[in-house]
């Protein structure tokens, strides 16, 4: 029995190690390609162990990096502003919905929940943001459409409040004369640190990784591109080059396009902050997404 158990452990670990490698190796490949010598890339392709290394891509990026630096600033700006506004709105909304004594609470919860079931889709949304609420081609295009408040997160957070914060605690504070905002700030929030951390990570991640808002609403203002939108744009340039319709146009793109290694270097710079921050949030993140699975 013990023997059998041991061999099972070995098999289970082997499978998990294999899966972990599948998750990590593409990133290693990405990082390696960004520090591979350009000629070596053309000769031998992307490889996990390139024979000739070079930091030229990063050097070039820092030297001529006006565009990249600017995109990085836009990413940081949209992530910070979007996450703080989105998080505040989500917390406020979730807290009001979590109060069992609030009249009209069910109708309000349905108002939030219904947005998860039915929506108007891209066409009306696009027309709204380009014609009627003209935020396209302004910095707001990166912040306002679609990401600020997510109904699923509101419900997730409300579930956390209702299951983790005893009503009696809130009741006692109210009797002591504390207002609702004070109750939220001094009692509820300190008791919800794991949830707040998860939510910050989820909303922050959504902003950091977003490229769709830029793709849809920044078509005429490339100077506002965030790093992901820029990456997305460069990916399509390769495509234009590859399907090579017009030789002159292809040559022009080739001349202005950063080289392959530089592209990979920008991608590395785009994911690095996530890879650095994530281990610190990991514990909360795992806890938080499991709360999300509980029905609201």
């Amino acid at each position: 029995m013990v023997e059998k158990n041991k061999s099972f452990q070995v098999v289970a670990n082997a499978v998990m190690i294999f899966l972990s490698l599948c998750c990590i190796l593409p990133f290693v490949l990405l990082i390696m390609s960004s520090i591979t010598d350009e000629n070596e890339l053309i000769r031998n392709g992307y490889s996990l162990l390139p024979s000739q290394l070079s930091l030229d891509a990063y050097r070039y990026m820092f030297k001529s990096g006006g565009k990249i630096f600017n995109a990085y600033l836009m990413t940081i700006f949209s992530t910070v502003v979007g996450t703080s506004c989105g998080l505040s709105m989500t917390v406020l909304m979730a807290y009001s919905l979590s109060r069992r004594d609030l009249p009209g609470r069910n109708a309000m919860a349905f108002y939030v929940f219904f947005t998860m079931l039915f929506n108007g889709g891209l066409v009306p949304t696009y027309i709204m943001y380009t014609r009627y609420i003209p935020i396209s081609n302004t910095p707001w295009a990166l912040i306002i459409p679609s990401l600020l408040v997510n109904a699923f997160y509101v419900i997730m957070m409300r579930t956390y409040f209702t299951t983790n914060i005893p009503e009696a605690v809130i009741e006692a504070a109210r009797i002591d004369g504390a207002g609702e905002f004070r109750v939220l700030l001094t009692i509820v929030l300190p008791m919800s640190v794991p949830m707040i951390a998860t939510m910050t990570l989820l909303i922050g991640l959504a902003y950091w990784n977003d490229w769709k808002n830029g793709l849809y609403y920044l078509q005429q203002n490339k100077s506002l591109y965030s790093i992901q939108v820029l990456l997305n744009d460069m990916l399509r340039d390769v495509q234009a080059l590859k399907s090579g319709m017009d030789a002159a146009a292809a040559a022009e793109i080739a001349a202005t396009m950063p080289s392959t290694a530089i592209k990979m270097a920008i991608a590395v710079v785009g994911v690095l902050p996530i890879l650095i921050v994530y281990p610190f949030f990991q514990k909360y993140f795992v806890k938080g997404i499991t709360i999300g699975a509980v029905k609201g």
């Binding site: 919905l97 939030v112 949304t125 600020l148 609702e180």
Partner: peptide, 24 residues
């Protein structure tokens, strides 16, 4: 105060989800 807390998010969801529905 609780209704006021609900309001900003509700207005946003109105713009993001309910307005485009009419655009169908």
């Amino acid at each position: 105060p609780l209704y006021l807390m609900f309001l900003p998010g509700a207005l946003y969801l109105f713009m993001k989800n309910y307005l485009p529905m009419s655009g169908l």
